[in-house]
């Protein structure tokens, strides 16, 4: 696969490769969701899979999120490996009872008699003027719940490698993509290149401040890092990639070296991913940090439609630059 690996692949096609390879590898894997077969998926992630694997394994469902998510959980209890596509995370709210009360609980609550090897894929995020009900980032809702695994890939390579790991994992995996990343191109691994959960990755090395970002915010943070580099400030951008499990050692190790941390999170600021990460870092790095941990979040409002308002609500590179400068400026080093 060395020639293929060299060729940049879009995030959506990287996901498609992972699905195709796992469908071919394991007959227990099947896909279901709204418009994923005949329509190729709302974001075209499942393009061509109906033709290749047939309607028994690539299944169009009615618009019935709680029902088909529960159905997939029930099927997974017998050892099948359903990969559910929920069109966007906003609609997963309809399936939260099934995800939280069933998928996350069944292995523990019944003393380990069955597991639930299901993957629930869905994009989150805003930026397309879809207003309040179609632009949410709810990663923390899932990351809050023991029994779930939560994965948020930011690159095509991670999208493919982490999805393959998710499908082979025996626990329920919430796999949160981002609408703004489907067209993002990059190298991808081959059929046997799995990326393990719980390994953060350094996207850019630096010494002055650690910037922690995931999903689309990685790219926002990297752009900010470029602008800061022009001012002679080198930030270290770290992508946790998974929140359950969380690789705190890599995050804390970087923060202990730089003495500064800024967390960039497309979710809301209250009680969310950035708040949880900040707590972990305060506990792990209290004696090393030179300033309060900075946070850049979506504004604490329902997402507005108007383009200027939406852009003001979402974290921008300039917000990250400002947060880093403020953090370093307040430091004693």
């Amino acid at each position: 696969m060395s020639t293929d690996a060299a060729k940049p692949v879009a995030y959506r096609d990287a996901l498609n490769q992972a699905l195709r390879e796992e469908l071919a590898r394991d007959p227990d894997v099947f896909l279901l969701g709204e418009d994923i077969a005949g329509f190729d998926g709302a974001f075209k992630v499942t393009r061509g899979l109906l033709e290749e694997f047939g309607p028994e394994r690539v299944v169009d469902t009615p618009i019935t999120e709680a029902g088909f998510t529960g159905l997939a959980i029930g099927a997974a209890m017998t050892g099948l490996r359903p990969v559910v596509e929920i069109m966007t995370v906003n609609f997963a709210i309809l399936a939260m009872d099934q995800i939280v009360n069933n998928a996350a609980k069944i292995h523990y609550m019944f003393g380990g008699q069955v597991s639930v090897p299901i993957v629930i894929r869905m994009p989150g995020g805003g930026g397309h003027q879809l207003s309040s009900q179609h632009s949410q980032t709810l990663d923390s809702w899932f990351a809050h719940v023991p029994g779930l695994k939560v994965v948020c890939p930011s690159t095509p390579e991670d999208a493919k490698g982490l999805l393959k790991t998710a499908i082979r994992d025996d626990d329920p995996v919430i796999f949160i993509e981002n609408e703004g990343l489907y067209g993002k191109k990059g190298p991808v691994g081959g059929p046997d290149d799995l990326i393990p959960f719980g390994q953060a990755v350094v996207r850019r090395a630096g010494t002055h401040c650690t910037v922690i970002a995931h999903s689309r915010m990685v790219w926002v943070a990297l752009q900010a890092a470029e602008e800061l580099a022009a001012q002679g400030i080198e930030v270290e951008v770290i992508d946790p990639r998974t929140f359950r499990p969380l690789d705190l050692d890599t995050l804390a190790g970087s923060v202990r070296r730089t003495g500064h941390a800024v967390i960039v999170d497309e979710g809301w600021p209250e009680y969310g991913i950035s708040a949880g990460l900040a707590t972990h870092l305060y506990e792990a790095c209290f004696d090393w940090i030179d300033a309060p941990i900075g946070r850049v979040n979506c504004a604490d409002v329902p997402m507005p439609y108007a383009k200027n308002l939406e852009q003001a609500a979402l974290p921008q590179p300039a917000d990250v630059v400002a947060a880093v400068l403020a953090n370093i400026g307040r430091g004693v080093s």
């Binding site: 029902g67 088909f68 998510t69 529960g70 159905l71 959980i73 029930g74 099927a75 209890m77 099934q98």
Partner: peptide, 10 residues
């Protein structure tokens, strides 16, 4: 009930 349906699906 959807779990029972999933068992039927399987």
């Amino acid at each position: 009930v959807p779990l029972g349906l999933g068992l039927a699906y399987a």
